[in-house]
Design a protein around this nucleic acid. Structure first.
Lengths: 152, 152
DNA sequence: TGTTGACCTTAACATTAGTTGAGGTTCTAG
DNA sequence: CTAGAACCTCAACTAATGTTAAGGTCAACA
């Protein structure tokens, strides 16, 4: 085990991976993308500060909400200090992502309602739907699908 | 213009693309993936039955709900007849996808609530969070991230 | 008939988020 | 000290969803 003190100061890549429930290759990947960082031993092996666990936990949550890694990296970069995110940082990040999440939920909810309406009205399938031009001669009005723009 | 009768029976790929608001390359792509089909002119150009517009509208909606193309293709394949989806088909497809959508919304909602809780409790950032082992010595209990499993 | 825009195929590229394998080095336990 | 586990790099591959480019053909209008 790397650095097996009573209170380990540094973690090997394998330890980080297993403690976070992700693959070693994913840890490497996140480091390449600049999301986390490490120092090296004399033998060129990575050693991670334990704060990386918090970062990885944050990454996992953000990913679940649908935030791409690039944005997560950006958010990390914008933190005032370049160490481990503290409580205040986390609050900032998470409430921002919570907003994003709410917006995505709203979008999907609107879509669901629209879909529900369209199941009833049959606008996708029946030619006399108010939104669908009867003989499709609306086409000359220009491109773009006039369908399913109910709620819009 | 291809087949310029008073009531066009067949559409060229460009017409289909512009009427659906998608790129020609996307139409080709969907055909390669088996989602739509066409016949050919003597000169080897595609001609699409107008029903393809309905199919493409359905594809667009399904994609918005997060259904991958492979599943859309599967759903199309399972339709009893192999022509254009009719009202009943559409109802079946859309209500199924509506269920999927609802589930995704529920998932995201649970995540949001969890995130909201964690903003307050600070479990990701503060070491005395009930879910976070104080000195991280819980690690020997095996791999896996113990964080953010509140609502689970 | 000539020109031009729309079309054809095939292959390569782009993006996101990683995984897998080859070939070689380091670390740790016995 | 040595075997084997864990680590290293680099390149290639996966999957989904398309786009772009190259090189060639077709068709419609004047």
């Amino acid at each position: 085990m790397a650095g097996s003190g009573v209170l380990q100061r540094y973690l090997s890549v394998g330890e980080v991976a297993s403690r976070c429930g992700i693959a070693v290759s994913a840890v490497h990947f996140y480091e390449r993308k600049g999301l986390i960082s490490s120092i090296r031993t004399d033998g060129n092996q990575r050693r991670f500060h334990r704060g990386v666990l918090r970062k990885l936990a944050i990454i996992k949550v953000a990913q679940k909400t649908g935030i791409p890694l690039s944005e997560i990296a950006e958010a990390f970069d914008k933190l005032p200090h370049n160490t481990v995110p503290n409580a205040k940082d986390w609050e900032k990040l998470s409430s921002q992502w919570c907003d994003d999440l709410n917006e995505r939920i709203d979008q999907l909810t609107r879509l669901r309602d629209q879909l529900g309406q369209c199941i009833g009205c049959g606008c996708l399938s029946i030619s006399d739907c108010p939104l669908r031009n009867p003989a499709d001669e609306l086409a000359k009005d220009g491109p773009g699908a006039p369908l399913l723009e109910h709620g819009k």
